[in-house]
């Protein structure tokens, strides 16, 4: 109790400037220590959070990588010759052999009359293109928009 009284007495008798200096020093000390450890704990905390995040991301990357590989395999399976053969068979198609190959005329192409039977070396002569492929913009505007056939 005496110590408290002595400190109180001393404090009361100090000039106010000194009082403020002592208070400021004490506060600054506490703040400095607090700030130091606050920073220490804050950065540790950030490091922990980010580290955990990185660890999770790393695990996620690995899982995704694995999943991609597995899905890639599944996709390849679905698009494989093997699978397509089964599907074709189920749908009633039969395997084509070279003897089965025959040539059908394609709609946009016609052969010259004196040309040999369709073969790779045969010269195919294209039919004239339909008008819709050769018409100019001005003609189209005139025929289809400004003076449509029904109106003319």
């Amino acid at each position: 109790m005496d110590t408290v009284r002595i400190l109180h007495q001393t404090y009361k008798e100090l000039p106010w400037r000194k009082r403020i200096r002592y208070i400021a020093t004490a506060l600054a000390f506490v703040l400095a220590v607090g700030a130091f450890f606050f920073l220490e704990v804050h950065f540790s905390n950030r490091a922990i959070l980010l580290g955990r995040q990185a660890q999770h991301l790393q695990a996620e990357i690995q899982n995704d990588r694995l999943e991609i590989i597995i899905l890639q395999g599944q996709l390849a399976e679905q698009t494989s010759l093997n699978h397509l053969h089964k599907v074709a068979k189920r749908l009633g198609y039969r395997p084509l052999t070279l003897q089965d190959v025959h040539y059908a005329p394609a709609p946009a192409w016609a052969l010259a009359e004196d040309s040999p039977k369709p073969a790779l070396q045969a010269q195919a002569v294209p039919t004239p293109l339909p008008r819709k492929y050769t018409i100019s913009l001005a003609e189209w505007l005139s025929e289809e928009v400004l003076y449509p056939r029904a109106m003319r």
């Binding site: 506490v30 220590v33 607090g34 450890f37 606050f38 220490e40 704990v41 540790s44």
Partner: peptide, 12 residues
């Protein structure tokens, strides 16, 4: 304050 600071010191 002493407890908080002390805890911080201990943690560190």
């Amino acid at each position: 304050a002493a407890v908080v600071v002390g805890r911080m010191v201990l943690l560190a």
